[in-house]
């Protein structure tokens, strides 16, 4: 099973400020623990939304909307992808995630499980559904 740990943006991360040394050090230590436990698959920090854009779809029409975006609490600042044996194990790892707030104040991370049907047996119905879902 795989889980995506999403770090929510903060005003500081949106301002493009580099995380201060203690936060960087804690993150590095956490990633090293994940690596040593063999559960880390991928991790990255993201540039502020000012450097990104959104594509709004309306039927076949596409509109590009350049960042920055105001709704900071809905933006993300980074992610960590882990492999765990159970939801509880992923929960335990995420509980140990360092506080991403630059000032040590309020930070938030969100954890989501990846859709991986092949992990749930391979009966024909699921397989066909998966085929349709992937190929579409």
């Amino acid at each position: 099973m795989r889980f995506l740990i999403v770090v929510k943006a903060t005003p500081a991360s949106e301002a493009g400020v580099m995380p201060p040394e203690p936060v960087l050090a804690e993150m590095a230590a956490y990633n090293e623990r994940l690596t040593r436990a063999g559960v880390l698959l991928d991790a990255a920090g993201l540039r502020p939304s000012a450097k990104g854009w959104r594509i709004r779809c309306a039927g076949r029409q596409r509109t590009v909307i350049d960042g920055p975006f105001a709704d900071t609490q809905h933006l993300i600042a980074g992610y960590t992808l882990i492999q765990a044996q159970s939801r509880a194990e992923a929960l335990e790892w995420s509980r140990r995630f360092p506080n991403p707030a630059f000032d040590g104040g309020n930070g938030e991370i969100e954890v989501r499980q990846l859709v991986e049907l092949e992990a749930f047996g391979l009966d024909a119905a699921v397989g066909r559904w998966r085929e349709l879902w992937i190929e579409r």
């Binding site: 436990a37 044996q85 159970s86 509880a88 194990e89 929960l91 335990e92 790892w93």
Partner: peptide, 10 residues
């Protein structure tokens, strides 16, 4: 209980 199992695994 589930948390303990997960901690055990880690």
């Amino acid at each position: 209980h589930r948390a303990v199992e997960a901690i055990w695994r880690i």
